Simulated scan of single mutants.
Amino acid sequence: MNAELSYTYAVVRPTPDLAEGTLPGVAGVASGAVRLVGAAGVAAAVGSVPESDFSEAALQVRLENLAWLERVARAHHGVVEFLASRTTVLPLRLATVYVDDDRVRDVLRRGAEAFTRMLDRFAGQVEWGVKVYAEIPREPAEPDDDEADAPDPGRSYLRKRRRQRADQGAARSAAAEAVERIEAAAGEVAVELARHRPQQGELAVGTGENIANDSYLVPGKRSEEFRDRVRRSTRDLQGVRVEITGPWAPYSFAVLTEPEAPEGVLRP
């Protein structure tokens, strides 16, 4: 029989609707049931997963498989969002795995003070993502009829290339200005900002070059105001696309600094 590990999704405070034991109707990673495991006034959402897929050695290989990673991420996110719709939640990073539930309880006991402090900090707050894209021309424009008929088509082509580079520079400049405007406008509402690496390659979605990939921690009651401020701040800029996503649980902000993180917290 395949050994199992305890995959841990998030930390919450137990409530009358979220008591220890199995969470009815909630399916997690590997389509498994999800349960609450409690200690020291806090609780963790936990599911059993096969050691063959989630041991440290297995994860080193599995996390390179984007299709597998996407399935796990979707299931992980589904559990966190279920909890976030009912209480304040401290999401743990993807593939936080412990040997068993007793180890999870030990982590909760030793990290109870830090967990409680963070749950207090996130009460009533949600995360919004804001991505800024520069819509950059990738190919030189076709020559105009008069340029195509010119005696020196090579010089005409170079003029087109110069115009393309100028358009690219203008789009990047506009996107950089958009980032500054958004930060200024959002700062009137948001309480924290987290910057992430712009997405490239297979992680990039949609058109344009991702210039900024930011997350804002926003009071839930001011979410519509936040979105409106972000939209209005860049409305007149050309060559820029702004993508707003959320509201989410505070994934980008649920990070314990090294001095306050007890051994094992937020680590497999």
Score class of each variant (00 low, 15 high):
residue 56 E to G: 12
residue 56 E to F: 14
residue 56 E to I: 13
residue 58 A to K: 09
residue 58 A to M: 10
residue 59 L to I: 15
residue 60 Q to K: 14
residue 61 V to H: 12
residue 62 R to L: 09
residue 62 R to E: 12
residue 62 R to M: 12
residue 63 L to V: 05
residue 65 N to S: 03
residue 65 N to E: 14
residue 65 N to D: 15
residue 65 N to V: 10
residue 67 A to C: 08
residue 68 W to C: 06
residue 68 W to I: 10
residue 68 W to P: 10
residue 69 L to P: 08
residue 71 R to K: 12
residue 71 R to W: 01
residue 71 R to V: 07
residue 72 V to W: 03
residue 76 H to S: 01
residue 77 H to V: 00
residue 78 G to H: 02
residue 79 V to L: 01
residue 79 V to H: 04
residue 80 V to S: 02
residue 80 V to H: 01
residue 80 V to L: 05
residue 81 E to P: 00
residue 83 L to I: 03
residue 83 L to N: 04
residue 83 L to K: 00
residue 83 L to D: 00
residue 84 A to N: 15
residue 84 A to W: 03
residue 85 S to V: 00
residue 85 S to M: 05
residue 86 R to W: 05
residue 86 R to D: 08
residue 90 L to P: 07
residue 94 L to Y: 06
residue 94 L to M: 12
residue 95 A to Q: 07
residue 97 V to I: 14
residue 97 V to A: 10
residue 99 V to K: 11
residue 99 V to W: 09
residue 99 V to R: 14
residue 103 R to W: 08
residue 104 V to H: 05
residue 106 D to L: 08
residue 106 D to Q: 14
residue 108 L to T: 02
residue 109 R to I: 03
residue 111 G to D: 08
residue 111 G to T: 02
residue 111 G to P: 03
residue 112 A to H: 06
residue 113 E to W: 05
residue 113 E to L: 11
residue 114 A to M: 07
residue 114 A to G: 07
residue 115 F to C: 08
residue 115 F to H: 01
residue 116 T to Q: 08
residue 116 T to D: 06
residue 117 R to L: 06
residue 118 M to G: 04
residue 119 L to M: 02
